[in-house]
């Protein structure tokens, strides 16, 4: 017996919600970044689950693309965080509210 499609989707929904709530709750940029990664992963899970239950490989290719975009996002996002830390000595997003300096 295998878990049904709905079970996988439920897990994905729970993870996505936790990620979204985390983005709202977290105040340091790295924490928010990690929560976004969690949301991306939840979406990946739905892709793989659908790919399995329709017997179509497209979903898995989408996952591959999402992962590549996440890698690019990590490179640029962490670069921005380091640059911001150099200017402000903090990664708190509330400190990023001024455009001056």
């Amino acid at each position: 017996m295998e878990p049904s499609l709905a079970t996988y989707l439920a897990l994905s929904g729970i993870l996505f919600t936790i990620g979204a709530v985390g983005v709202v709750f977290k105040r340091n940029a790295i924490g928010m970044f990690m929560c976004i990664e969690l949301m991306l992963n939840a979406v990946n899970l739905t892709f793989v689950a659908f790919s399995r239950y329709y017997g179509d490989v497209t979903g898995q290719l989408f996952v591959f693309m999402v992962m590549s975009v996440a890698a690019a996002e990590a490179a640029v996002g962490l670069g921005i965080i380091i640059a911001f830390f150099r200017n402000r000595v903090s990664v708190d997003v509330d400190d990023a509210s001024v455009l001056k300096n």
Binding site: E37, L45, V48, R52, F64, M67, A71, A74, A75, L78
Partner: peptide
């Protein structure tokens, strides 16, 4: 879980890219 979904390639790539590259970068930072 991807392995239970019969997607071994995606499972391996998940470990390789997310756990092995992105999170190493995050922990490094």
């Amino acid at each position: 879980i991807y392995i239970t979904l019969a997607a071994p390639f995606i499972a391996a790539v998940q470990i390789l890219i997310y756990a092995g590259a992105i999170m190493v970068l995050v922990i490094f930072v």
